[in-house]
């Protein structure tokens, strides 16, 4: 499979943080970032009965990771892909169809709104991002580069 060099640059660094399902833990994590002057671009929480995983997109992921770790949080940095969705019915469905047709199994996804462009941005995670990027490119989807996501 040919991998286009430019695609490497389309990967966005996401922070995943382990949260115990205990009062005040989410606040503590977010407050740690606030104190460090780090703005949050996008956020998603996955939870079970006793723990949760907080997923964040921030402008300076390395700095944020260090800061959280200094405060005893467990942080994993992971790459995801951002896709711009046209703001019309079927926008999300058309992206998912591309993945379905290519047998790509998503680990998770979450969406937020790109205020400047008034468009929705979809963040996708799967085990092989290169294949995902290729499929999205081939399907004509608009990938959003990291600089743009960090600077929303």
């Amino acid at each position: 499979m040919e991998i286009r060099l430019g695609d490497k640059k389309m990967k966005i660094k996401q922070l995943s943080i382990f949260l115990e399902n205990k009062k005040g833990r989410l606040w503590t994590a977010l407050n740690t970032l606030a104190d460090g002057g780090i703005n949050i671009r996008a956020l998603s929480i996955a939870d079970t009965s006793d723990f949760g995983i907080l997923r964040l997109i921030v402008p300076e992921p390395e700095k944020a990771k260090k800061l959280l770790e200094e405060n005893n949080f467990i942080v994993k940095m992971k790459e995801v892909v951002a896709v711009e969705l046209s703001d019309q019915p079927g926008g999300l469905a058309s992206v998912l169809k591309m993945l379905n047709d290519s047998d790509i199994n998503l680990e998770y996804l979450y969406a937020f709104v790109h205020e400047k462009k008034d468009k929705a941005i979809l963040l996708l995670s799967t085990d092989d991002l290169d294949v995902l990027i290729e499929v999205l490119n081939d399907g004509g989807a608009t990938l959003v580069p990291p600089e743009e996501v960090y600077d929303l």
Partner: peptide, 14 residues
């Protein structure tokens, strides 16, 4: 939980 134990995915944590 430790760094090496933690996974970004719920199913792996379970």
């Amino acid at each position: 939980t430790s760094e090496s134990l933690f996974s970004d995915e719920i199913k792996e944590m379970v």
